[in-house]
């Protein structure tokens, strides 16, 4: 148990180190310095700036400083808006993104479990076909295609909800739906196949042989077992929602970290791109780790370390 957790933590740190180093190497491989594109700066100012950002030191030293700062959770400063630290930028934008993300995950999980179960219980009948068609459409239509249509009809022509921007709860509805679309389809499909799989298990026959009513067989025997695989895709799901937030926040002009990240990519604000990438990576890697722990904790069958890594 403890050995497994320690092993996982080491693997996690290794992944983080790889991504941090990779980002560093990539950023340093860009020709010129970050200030070349700026308006001509006086010689002395440029020198001061270089010194301030340790850019005048040899690369290995820069790498060490960078890693030391990372270890202290210091992600550096923006070049384009030099008053702001990356930590501040994250602190500003992430809560907004997180709210959207959590809403989207809740929609995906709740609706997905209901729809997936319905499809499985009506296997090979109309509701099953209808839900599966919806699900495959959900997987196929990119959110940046869906979102403008939601805006155009629900937001603009029928004027039901705010078309964009950030304010009260109504502003979150359309982006949450757009963001939830793909995860919803994934959860639905997984839940359907999971329920179908559990339905064929011997212990379901046992439950039926006990004379339990179908509703109880479903809630206490099928659902309980079918829900576990959903936990395993929580990692990829969160990753999908995170990258989805880049486009969704851009389309709906929501002041979240995703929109900010996209803008910084566009402006080539390298320290921010670097810092936010590392933050996102750390977040996702940590989420995967937590999901794995939760899975082993809730499923009585799985003992830590025994699960085959898929």
């Amino acid at each position: 148990m403890l050995r497994y957790v320690v092993k996982r933590i080491l693997l996690m740190l290794l992944s983080l180190w790889v991504i941090a180093t990779l980002t560093f190497v990539l950023m340093k491989s860009i020709p010129g310095d970050p200030f070349t594109s700026e308006k001509k700066l006086p010689e002395q100012t440029l020198k001061n700036l270089m010194a301030h950002y340790h850019l005048d030191k040899p690369l290995p030293t820069q790498y060490l400083i960078y890693m030391k700062n990372l270890a202290n959770f210091d992600l550096g400063f923006s070049i384009k808006s030099s008053t702001r630290s990356v930590n501040e930028i994250i602190a500003d934008g992430f809560p907004v993104s997180a709210q959207l993300g959590i809403q989207a995950i809740l929609i995906a999980l709740i609706l997905g479990i209901i729809m997936g179960s319905t499809a499985a219980l009506r296997h090979n009948r109309l509701p099953d076909y209808a839900i599966m068609v919806l699900a495959v459409i959900g997987i196929s239509i990119p959110s940046f295609v869906l979102a403008p249509f939601l805006q155009k009809y629900i937001g603009w022509q029928w004027d039901l909800l705010p078309i964009a921007g950030w304010g009260d709860f109504t502003h979150t509805i359309l982006p949450s739906i757009a963001l939830a679309f793909l995860p919803l389809a994934l959860v639905t499909r997984l839940m359907r196949s999971s329920v179908l799989d559990v339905q064929g298990q011997d212990y379901i026959r046992t439950a039926q042989a006990k004379g339990l009513p179908p509703v109880r067989v479903f809630t206490h025997h099928i659902l309980r077992n079918a829900i576990f695989p959903i936990i395993t895709i929580m990692g990829p799901l969160v990753a999908g929602i995170l990258t989805g937030s880049f486009v969704i926040e851009k389309i709906f002009s929501i002041p979240g970290l995703g929109k900010r990240f996209v803008e910084d990519i566009f402006n080539r604000d390298y320290p921010v791109i670097m810092g936010v990438t590392i933050f996102y990576s750390a977040f996702l890697i940590l989420m995967n780790f937590i999901v794995d722990l939760v899975y082993t904790w809730v499923d009585p069958r799985v003992k830590l370390g025994e699960r085959e890594v898929e």
Partner: peptide, 12 residues
């Protein structure tokens, strides 16, 4: 049933 290994609900 035949197979006691699979005939009991593993999560109850």
């Amino acid at each position: 049933f035949q197979d006691p290994m699979t005939s009991l609900n593993p999560t109850m």
